[in-house]
């Protein structure tokens, strides 16, 4: 098992909840490290050409850090997944930056509408798209923080709608509406002429 005491994360998350910034940082670090570790382990066993499934990764991390049977408080879950989404984002964005794939110049790179069918691979095509996407999400977060949260959970941790609803303590239709707006908005932003 991992090299930190069981329940440690829950403790940190609760401290973070009550405003302890150091605990918040430490909790994030914990999630981050564990995600990296598990992702690395999964990678080593994934045949070349196959991709890792973020859902499995995040769920495995959750089980490791939060335990399987203990019914945790929903706020703990929420903080965990928020941290996980952030960690997943950081891992990938860092990697993209490190590998020098930063292609983006001034504006948005244009996505051909014809490419739309393959737009699921928006992030795969080049690192620049990921950076653009990340920045667009940040922009959205300032105006519609809940929508951005839904996108992060959906995209970075692969949670399903009902899971997001549970984590954010919202109804499923609300999450679906948020998702529809956010996804369409981001798509429109990313396909915008510069």
């Amino acid at each position: 098992m991992s090299g930190f005491p069981e329940g440690e994360l829950t403790r940190l998350l609760r401290a973070a909840e009550s405003g302890d910034a150091a605990a918040s940082g430490r909790a994030f670090e914990l999630v981050y490290q564990e995600l990296r570790r598990i992702a690395g382990a999964q990678m080593s066993r994934t045949p070349p050409g196959q991709t890792l499934e973020p859902t499995a990764l995040v769920h495995e991390t959750y089980l490791r850090l939060m335990g399987r049977d203990d019914p945790r408080r929903s706020t703990d879950r929420r903080h965990f997944f928020a941290a996980a989404a952030q960690a997943m984002r950081d891992i990938v964005i860092e990697s993209v930056r490190r590998k020098g794939r930063l292609k983006r110049g001034g504006g948005w790179r244009r996505l051909d509408v014809d490419e739309v069918e393959a737009a699921g691979r928006v992030a795969e095509a080049s690192g620049g798209d990921l950076i653009a996407l990340d920045e667009a999400i940040s922009e959205l977060a300032r105006a519609e923080p809940r929508c951005a949260e839904v996108v992060r959970l959906r995209y970075w941790t692969g949670l399903k709608m009902d899971e997001i609803a549970e984590v954010l303590a919202l109804s499923v239709p609300t999450v679906e509406r948020d998702w529809r707006f956010a996804r369409t908005y981001l798509f429109a932003r990313l396909t915008e002429e510069s």
Binding site: G40, S44, L52, P54, I91, K99, A119, E124, Y155
Partner: peptide, 22 residues
């Protein structure tokens, strides 16, 4: 929107170096 943002993130591309190590 096709499958915009619905598909998995390509982890392999970003974690390959760590993976090789393990």
């Amino acid at each position: 929107l096709g499958r915009f943002l619905e598909a998995s993130t390509p982890w392999a591309a970003h974690l390959g170096d760590d993976g090789a190590e393990a």
